[in-house]
Design a protein around this nucleic acid. Structure first.
Length: 879
RNA sequence: GGGCGCAUAGCUCAGCUGGUUCAGAGCAUCUGCCUUACAAGCAGAGGGUCCGCGGUUCGAAUCCGUGUGCGCCCACCA
């Protein structure tokens, strides 16, 4: 027999089995006549690195996929990556900067060449990292949101929406990211409370020497773009100024004082400077009052020539400079601190600038209805389901989705304009030829040629490709066979933070293009945080090195660690300690294997009653566990599932079963017991496999010789739930109680476990029945080194269940203490019986409560009375 | 401003249909053990006003109301 190491060493074993699974094609899925079970991976950023969020997410998906395989379903987990337009482009830009290349100096083609080089170099690293974790994806299906198939889907969808009139181009106030120099959707802006200064600035009233109106602003630099001052129509403080003109400080532009009900009289001074170019509400006011729009900022956030002052200076510096200039000239009338919400770009973290611009939008109201209904009616189920409320709220107040981005890395918008015309006329088509045909049709000019057209420079929001993912990964716009088989997918596993960015939109896309939901269930994971509840981030340095963890604890250990702390929905407070626990668990199981493999089979030996009973019990417990797990899977309580398995394996299998079955020193084991133990271990491996795939696969093969293809990953769980042998569980349970008491007594009295303890039990028919069961005494002897006979109680007493035992100890017992202890127990039970009795004598209880409950109470009372009686007897014996 | 959620042991949380075998688990702490699978192990112990108040009920950690504290989402503040 080969020598097994004392500790489980995961490294080589993991690589070996992953390669084996790949070679055997166990992850591969093609449509057949089985029921399908499919998951599409939330595609990580193509140039990303594995972090704790991925570990959590993909461990869960892998568990569900492996379990589905065991259930005999055709399980298909589709992997892939996201081109992550803005994030990747930012990375490429900074990489180029390091090489002394400015994006502005490159053509689009040149830039994309660099971007693809970058993608080819770093792209897909994360997918290899997922393999380390054990992710059993069908790698042959690896998709990329910017590959040919996915790109074609995006273009088709854009054209389709446009033709259906659900997509439009319009001039709106949008969120501008000055660092990335692109527009963002509302969902990509994060609002956070920040401390800022509210300045009070006075504007002279035109035509007066010393009449002023004072406004309050947090952004003095935008004063240069003011085109009005607004006051509330009924604000008496300013009635006399309405209709007059004020003079913008420093640049002396005259602007009207207007009345608008938007103004909050209680805020600041009650007078509002109106800068339509740089504030959403100001823009609205501007529309109402037909005000000029003066854009004082450049796309990069610096002051534009229109500002007249500080031209080219960054907005933050300009704010300071503006304040100083205003103060010097006596325009500052005061300032105070203000805490308000500031919107920042999700990607670049810079403050987002409201900006008026011409962009493409999806008319969300036109496509939202079926998606809202689907979740409302639980056609799509959410776990946890309280996220339905959040979803409903967003869907009911849905706003149009700005999908154009001023970037190069992404799907270029399939819209064309006349090369030298304005962009009034838009021609949308899947390619230039189609666009040209459109152009000819719309303009009536048959002489137009391709070179007369220019394509929209912008690309589409990354999510505009992600929302098609459940369909596009199956090439669902070009062929039907695969998508018909795998779609709707079974479950989506993702974080709740992208419920709007991604999940909601996928549901809408599903109904829009397939008339069907994209998945039956969404399992929302929480955010991974550190022990102090801080979000994991690079800046804080509190994000553990995911691959390092796998190296240190093994993939199975890490899987256990992340899962054990991860109930659905709630935040996950990740503690490396849990990985240690997982590693220890692996080691425990490994050592169970070592133990079993060390046993010699002795054909001459008989199978004895004790072992027979232990096997029966272990089988019953296994069935119980099996039933329990089914329930936990069906409710996606994976965290509970793995902890239940942990105690089941550790306590029941290792501490109890193996100890009960273990041959004595120098003895061998009968073949039947050995075989039964191997079978039990196998069945445990099956239950454990989805959670700890590597270890279980190794054990599976260590337990016995296997034929090719007989791998744990392909093992099946029974379709039918077996009947649990309750009687054996009860019998064995009682023995375990006695065992615990014996150990406790030994501990209390410092007795050696080597010395056999003699127990005496009272003459009770139930007890006699228990101890006359074949094997009962043998098991007790094995587990506790104690014998048990019926007889008169002498020595130290203890309770096991409702029965009182006595232990014959070779020590002096402290009678006083014994009596005191028993009297305390007695008092407790008397109180207990009393309260139960009270209940039972309450007529309302007896008549109102469930008959079962009443019966239970009666039983409690009866049991309590038995205990009292026995205690009293013991006490009187000692007296 | 609109909405959602949480409060149970030192920490993280279970407790799913109200029922004193329901006050639990794991970690941490403490005690004793290198016992021939495993010290990454084994055997034990202590630790609680189930956030406060009121109500429903025969009965409340559990249901309802309310107060307090905390977290989150959405909308939006010059």
């Amino acid at each position: 027999m080969e020598e097994l190491s004392k500790r489980y060493v995961p490294g080589d074993i993991e690589d070996k089995w992953y390669q084996h699974w790949m070679d055997a094609g166990h992850f591969r899925s093609v449509p057949d006549d089985r029921e399908s079970f499919s998951i599409v991976i939330p595609p990580p950023n193509v140039t990303g690195q594995l972090h704790m969020g991925h570990i959590l997410n993909n461990t869960i998906q892998d568990i569900l996929i492996r379990r589905a395989r065991q259930e005999g379903k055709n399980a298909c987990w589709v992997p892939g990556t996201d081109h992550a337009s803005i994030a990747t482009e930012a990375k490429v830009v900074s990489m180029l900067k390091e090489r002394g290349i400015r994006k502005a100096d490159l053509t689009r083609e040149e830039f994309l060449k660099y971007a693809w080089e970058w993608t080819d170099k770093y792209g897909g690293i994360i997918l290899h990292q997922l393999r380390k974790l054990g992710a059993s994806c069908d790698w042959d299906r690896t998709a990329f949101t910017l590959d040919e198939i996915r790109s074609e889907a995006v273009i088709q969808v854009f054209v389709d929406l446009f033709r259906k009139g659900k997509l439009y181009r319009g001039k709106r106030m949008v969120n501008w990211d000055p660092a990335a120099q692109t527009v963002l959707s509302n969902e990509e802006v994060i609002y956070e409370e920040e401390k800022t200064t509210l300045y009070k600035v006075r504007y002279r009233i035109a035509g007066t020497e010393d009449e002023w109106i004072t406004i309050a602003t947090t952004r003095p630099e935008t004063i240069l773009g003011d085109t009005a001052i607004a006051v509330h129509p009924e604000d008496e403080r300013y009635t006399h100024l309405q209709g007059r003109k004020a003079v913008v400080p420093l640049i002396n532009r005259e602007i009207p004082v207007i009345a608008d009900a938007y103004v909050d009289t209680s805020f600041g001074t009650g007078a509002l400077k109106v800068t339509p170019a740089h504030d959403v509400n100001d823009y609205e006011i501007g529309l109402r009052h037909k005000l000029d729009v003066i854009d004082v900022l450049n796309p990069d956030g610096s002051m534009s020539p229109a500002a007249q002052l500080f031209v080219g200076m960054d907005r933050d510096k300009a704010r300071k400079a503006m304040f100083e200039a205003l103060e010097t000239d006596g325009y500052i009338a005061g300032s105070e601190e203000l805490i308000h919400n500031v919107g920042r770009s999700e990607r670049t973290r810079v403050v987002v600038e409201p900006r008026l611009s011409l962009q493409w939008f999806v008319d969300m109201k036109a496509i939202a209805a079926p998606a809202l209904k689907a979740v409302e009616e639980e056609e799509v189920r959410f776990y946890p389901d309280n996220l339905r409320n959040t979803y409903r709220h967003w869907m009911e107040n849905i706003r149009d989705w700005c999908i154009s981005r001023q970037l190069w890395w992404g799907h270029q918008i399939p819209a064309w304009y006349l090369r030298d015309g304005d962009s009034e006329h838009v021609f949308v088509g899947k390619d230039e030829a189609e666009a040209l045909a459109e152009a000819r049709r719309i303009t009536g000019r048959d002489d137009l040629e391709v070179h007369d057209l220019r394509q929209d420079e912008d690309v589409l929001d990354t999510w505009f490709s992600s929302w098609l993912w459940p369909i596009s990964v199956f090439d669902g716009w070009r062929r039907q066979d695969e998508v018909d088989y795998y779609y709707p997918t079974s479950v989506l596993v993702t974080g709740w933070d992208i419920i709007f960015l991604w999940v909601a939109r996928m549901i809408m896309a599903g109904y829009e293009w397939r008339g069907q939901k994209p998945f039956h269930t969404v399992y929302f994971t929480g955010m991974v945080r550190d022990k102090q509840r801080r979000k994991m981030s690079k800046q804080l340095g509190n994000s553990p090195d995911a691959l390092g963890l796998i190296d240190q604890y093994g993939a199975d250990g890490v899987r256990y660690g992340i899962l054990a702390s991860a109930p659905a929905g709630g935040d996950i407070l990740f503690d490396e300690k849990l990985c240690e626990l997982g590693r220890n668990f692996c080691n425990k199981i490994w050592n169970a294997l070592r133990l079993i493999k060390s046993w010699e089979i002795q054909p001459s030996r008989d199978h004895d009653d004790g072992r027979e009973l232990a096997i029966r019990w272990m089988n019953a417990r296994r069935m119980e566990m099996d039933t329990d797990l089914r329930q936990k899977y069906s409710q996606y309580r994976l965290s509970e599932g793995v902890t239940a398995l942990y105690t089941f394996v550790w306590d029941d299998f290792c501490s109890i079963y193996l100890e009960a079955i273990k041959p004595g020193y120098g003895e061998g084991l009968d073949a039947e017991s050995y075989g039964a133990t191997v079978r039990l271990f196998e069945q445990i491996c099956i239950l454990l496999h989805p959670f700890m795939p590597f270890l279980t696969e190794e054990i599976w093969h260590q337990l016995r010789e296997r034929k090719t293809g007989d791998d744990c990953i392909r093992s099946r769980i029974d379709q039918e739930v077996g009947l649990v042998d309750k009687e054996t569980l009860e019998l064995f349970g009682h023995i375990l109680k006695v065992k615990s008491s014996v150990l406790e007594l030994r501990n209390q009295h410092q007795l050696s476990p080597r010395e056999t303890m003699t127990l005496v039990y009272p003459s009770d028919p139930e007890l006699i029945r228990i101890w006359h069961q074949p094997g009962a005494e043998a098991v007790l002897h094995k587990l506790a080194n104690a014998t048990c006979t019926q007889g008169l109680g002498e020595g130290v007493s203890f309770l096991a269940g409702k029965y009182q035992y006595h232990a014959v100890l070779q020590i002096e017992i402290d009678k006083e203490m014994e009596i005191k202890r028993m009297r305390e127990e007695l008092a407790y039970f008397e109180g207990f019986v009393n309260s139960v009795d009270k209940k039972l004598s309450n007529e309302k209880f007896v008549s109102n409560a469930h008959p079962d409950v009443v019966e239970k109470e009666r039983q409690k009372k009866a049991d309590g009375l038995v205990k009292i009686e026995q205690l009293q007897k013991s006490i009187s014996q000692l007296l």
